[in-house]
Computed example of a mutant assay.
Amino acid sequence: GLNLSFAESCTAGLVAAKLGSISGASEVFSGSLVTYSNHIKNVWLGVDEAVLKTKGAVSSQCVEQMAKGALNMSGADFAIAISGIAGPGGGSREKPVGLVYIAVANDEHCEVRECHFSGDRDYIREQSALRAYSLLLESFWDEIVE
């Protein structure tokens, strides 16, 4: 009876597509938002403009607010949010290609991880999606299997 929603940036819907490829996904899948631009992160998910300006879209603060926004928009029990730099361009010394932040949340708790992946764009996106599901299970196993 539990359900899940997503807010994705660098994975561009890959996390949702993985769940959607499973027969019966509609029993647990509430919906997904692909929020590539900062404007959409702000308007659709309520990510604070100050966070986007001072910390950036690729930050722990941003993905935490994305996850909470996904929960608020969908009414789901759990949310996954991802933002990062999949490359090959877009990286910097402070935020290199492969830096990805993942958040998993419910109404009471939000867990955020900073991940560093290497490889090409597809590999970074794939690893980000898989790590997001892993983090959900690590963080909320007891609530999920009740």
Rank of each mutant, 00 (worst) to 15 (best):
H116W: 04
L45H: 09
V47S: 04
F78E: 01
D107L: 04
A50R: 15
T11N: 00
L33H: 00
G119C: 03
A67M: 12
G46P: 00
V112C: 04
I80N: 07
A17W: 06
K18I: 11
I85G: 09
L14T: 02
F117M: 01
S60M: 11
N72S: 15
Q61L: 12
G87Y: 00
K41S: 08
V43H: 13
I85M: 03
A103Y: 00
T35P: 02
K95D: 07
C10I: 02
A105H: 07
T11W: 08
F78I: 06
S30C: 10
D48W: 02
N42G: 05
E94V: 12
G31L: 05
V34K: 06
L33P: 01
F78C: 09
G20W: 07
V28F: 03
V100G: 13
L99Q: 06
E108I: 06
A12N: 14
A76G: 11
V34R: 00
I82Q: 09
L45T: 03
N72E: 14
G24S: 09
A57K: 08
E114D: 02
G24R: 07
P96L: 07
V15W: 02
S74V: 01
E64M: 12
G84P: 05
S26W: 08
W44Q: 14
G69F: 05
A25K: 00
V104G: 01
G20R: 11
K41R: 05
G84W: 08
E27M: 03
K18G: 05
E8A: 10
K55R: 12
S74T: 15
S9F: 11
A79G: 12
T54H: 14
K41T: 11
A17N: 14
H109W: 05
E64I: 09
G31K: 00
V58S: 01
G20L: 15
S60R: 15
I82H: 06
A16Y: 09
V112Y: 00
V112E: 03
S9D: 01
M66P: 06
Y36V: 02
Q65L: 13
A103R: 01
I40Y: 02
A57Y: 01
V104R: 04
A12L: 10
N42V: 08
V34C: 07
A79Y: 12
S32C: 07
F117E: 08
M66G: 01
L14M: 13
G98Q: 12
L99H: 09
A86S: 07
E49T: 13
N42A: 04
